[in-house]
């Protein structure tokens, strides 16, 4: 056999080997967490709350807190992010403004979350007097996810076909009616993808929420506006950290890890489904 073909074969073997090693590594990580966590999971664990007197463990409060933080941060970041993206791509004439925004968004999307944790704690919790609450945590996260939502929305707006614009403007449509009836509907999938990415970051975030949203594992009261604003507590990833690092309760930590893996997988398949729709249109 030709030495060049041997080299070719060896190089291909190397590629397969690397991919195999990476897959094995990642599979082992997820598999191990699931293997340790699954036996700890039970309906009572998912739907109960922790009680030291009653000797029960449960993560329902953290599940609820996670959902609340996702909902509130998206409710803030979505209108601002999408509105800003529409203005920057469709209206803005000032190039400095547009490029400044793109530059800042690019820089801030790479900034470590621990820095947002400090900002959130200093600005929202202290300066604005929100204390450590789910609200303060959500607001900090909405700032953290703003660059993501802004960029994905801008990309999908730019991808809207020129023919829609020409067609609508040629009929005497004003700019905003054109955007509302054609450009935004055509960009919906991209916007949804941005939201899913943002939700994924919220689910995975710990550092920010530790310092801005609190560590309580007790069920919060969302029955009135006032008590909801004061609600403070751990989301799932914060709870995992508390179980693992502060209480050394690895059983509970792995159970939470398993729940987080499922949540991540769900968010991923949602994003993939939206992605498929984008490609089909």
């Amino acid at each position: 056999m030709n030495p060049r073909h041997i080299r070719d074969f060896a190089a291909k073997a190397l590629l397969w080997l690397s991919a195999g090693a990476v897959s094995a590594l990642l599979l082992a990580l997820a598999g191990y967490a699931g293997f340790r966590g699954a036996p700890e999971l039970s309906w009572r664990f998912l739907t109960g709350q922790e009680s030291i007197l009653g000797g029960t463990a449960g993560i329902l409060p953290s599940v609820v807190n996670t959902l609340v933080v996702i909902a509130v941060s998206l409710a803030v970041v979505l209108p601002v992010g999408v509105g800003a993206a529409v203005y920057l791509t469709e209206y803005a004439r000032n190039r400095l403004f547009v490029e400044g925004a793109a530059f800042a968004a690019g820089v801030l999307s790479g900034v470590p979350s621990i820095l947002y944790a400090m900002i959130g704690a200093l600005v929202f919790c202290d300066k604005l007097g929100l204390q450590k609450t789910l609200l303060a945590g959500s607001l900090t996260l909405s700032i953290m996810t703003l660059p993501t939502v802004l960029r994905t929305t801008q990309e999908s707006l730019k991808a809207a076909p020129l023919s829609y614009r020409e067609g609508a403007l040629g009929l005497g449509a004003g700019k905003w009616p054109m955007i509302r009836t054609l450009i935004l509907p055509a960009s919906v999938d991209g916007i949804v993808t941005g939201c899913i990415l943002a939700a994924g970051r919220v689910v995975g975030e710990t550092a920010v929420l530790m310092y801005t949203a609190g560590l309580s594992m007790v069920m919060q009261d969302f029955s009135s506006l006032q008590s909801a604003l004061d609600a403070s507590g751990a989301t799932l990833s914060t709870a995992l950290y508390v179980y693992a690092k502060e209480r050394a309760d690895f059983g509970a930590a792995f159970a939470v890890a398993t729940v987080l893996l499922f949540l991540t997988a769900a968010i991923n398949s949602l994003a993939a489904a939206v992605g498929r729709r984008v490609r089909r249109v």
């Binding site: 997820a30 689910v203 995992l240």
Partner: peptide, 8 residues
């Protein structure tokens, strides 16, 4: 996957 899971 959340970084705390990797940490765990």
């Amino acid at each position: 996957v959340p970084s705390v899971v990797c940490g765990l």
